[in-house]
């Protein structure tokens, strides 16, 4: 802005805000008075537009219309920010509490119970978060075996547990060769009587999917074909030193 434009802007601001009159502005800036005068005179005439007033009758009528409109179209009470976050945090805490309680409860349910799917989902989450997938799968397989032992008298529930068991076995097959897997898993006899207890696996076996070459070779012992009524829970392992080159 050049000098004249700055003076004009200043005078206009003063005129628009009512801080000074046109004459006062011109007196303060005599060097621009001739140029300023037509602009400020016009601006002052426009400022006089402030004198326009609506009639009292109109104001009352419009207010009554507005009141009727507000009554006919009430506003829904908007949530304040604080109330919204307070409700959101209470709901989040409740949801978390429900999730934890439900998960804890689900760990004890059997196939066919309402929370059984919740149990399977929680096991999937457990497996995905666990750094040792093999041992987790073995633990899950043991759970299925435990379930099979409990629901052996109910074919439907037994089938569900068995299905879960085979899912775990399928995962383990991708981790081990057939021989190792056969040595870990108990043979399941489809014609076995319900009273026959299926032995649990040993998740703490020193078995890893890819043994380190320097580690001693681990050969798990095979399970006996005909299991005794109460088989040993821990299968002993034999450590064989690496072959001498």
């Amino acid at each position: 802005m050049n000098d004249f434009e700055q003076v004009l802007e200043k005078c206009i601001n003063e005129l628009a805000s009512g801080a000074s009159t046109l004459d006062e502005c011109l007196t303060r800036h005599p060097e621009h008075a001739v140029q300023l005068r037509p602009f400020l005179l016009t601006a002052a005439r426009v400022v006089m537009g402030n004198e326009v007033q609506p009639s009292a009758a109109f104001k009352a009528r419009a207010r009554a219309n507005l009141t009727l409109h507000m009554q006919a179209h009430p506003r829904k009470r908007a949530w304040s920010g604080f109330a919204f976050w307070r409700l959101a945090s209470v709901l989040a805490v409740l949801a978390l509490a429900f999730l934890i309680t439900g998960t804890v409860y689900a760990q004890g349910v059997l196939p066919g119970d309402p929370f059984y799917n919740w149990k399977l989902v929680s096991e999937r989450v457990w497996r995905s978060l666990s750094p040792d997938h093999v041992n987790t799968d073995l633990a899950i397989a043991n759970r299925r075996i435990g379930e099979m032992n409990v629901v052996a008298n109910d074919p439907m529930r037994m089938a569900r547990a068995l299905e879960g068991y085979y899912e775990v076995v399928a995962r383990l097959e991708s981790e081990f060769d057939a021989e190792t897997l056969e040595s870990i898993l108990p043979p399941l006899d489809p014609f076995a009587s319900p009273e026959q207890v299926i032995p649990t696996l040993t998740p703490t076996l020193n078995v890893s999917a890819t043994p380190h070459p320097r580690d001693p070779e681990i050969i798990p012992t095979t399970l006996p074909g005909n299991l005794p009524p109460n088989p040993p829970k821990i299968i002993p392992t034999i450590e064989v030193p690496p072959p001498i080159p």
Binding site: L66, R77, S80
Partner: peptide, 23 residues
Amino acid sequence: RAKSGDPDAFARIYDAYVERVYR
């Protein structure tokens, strides 16, 4: 207050600004 549905608050806003809007 008007946002939370108070018609009296909005009526006061009307009283304050109706002349300016009219002009």
